[in-house]
Amino acid sequence: MVEPDGNGSLAIKVRGLTKVYGPQVVLRNLDLELSWGNFLIVFGPNGSGKTTLIKALSTISRPTEGEVSVAGFDLKRNPAAIRRNIGLVTHQPLLYGDLTALENLRFHGKMFGLTNLEERIEKVADLMGVNSFLGRKASILSHGMQKRLSLARAILHDPPILLLDEPETGLDQEALEMLGQMMGAGERGRRTVVMATHSVERGLALGNRLAILSGGKIAFHEDRANIDEAMFKSTYGRFTGVAS
């Protein structure tokens, strides 16, 4: 297990998180706790606030109200420390299209102030299987390759916590399997993962804890071991209003 650099016993602790975008209340008094080493899947239909939750955890979006602590660091007081301890993958690749894959990784690493940059790049490139196209511009890579590259970018600084916002969109089957095997297994031990998705099949296969986001709150949060697949699917169907 990866021990926190901060001093919190929980990887993620959210208390009373509310996020309002103008007239829209996206998250409403949301509570969430996750201990180290877990792989949490957050299900929710489109517009349920998954992306907003991931953005708040990754310090990009400032909560309207509430306490957020990630890796033992408080979001308001020490966002830089949180950023050092997380890696984020979203549906956008977050790559500069006119830079090569290698240049993208290098730039990102420099922004993190990594001292063993070239070594790290070699390692994650091997891990994500992007070695063969490091010299190519990001814009001419296929979606699947871009996704792998952005995964490589996210784990470049070896963060103990990974935040994934629907990472499966555009990922080929092979990379998807890799995601399952590797995202959990960090180099310093098991990584803590929060993954937002609306694909029930994939979530059930990957996570060891499952949660449903509905009405701006965590409406359901349970250990995978205690969950019956069929039951869960029908429960989730109730939340989304679609029978799956």
Partner: peptide
């Protein structure tokens, strides 16, 4: 009013 409307919508 805007906030209340947004809240009603989200519910």
């Amino acid at each position: 009013v805007e906030l209340a409307r947004g809240l009603a919508e989200s519910l």
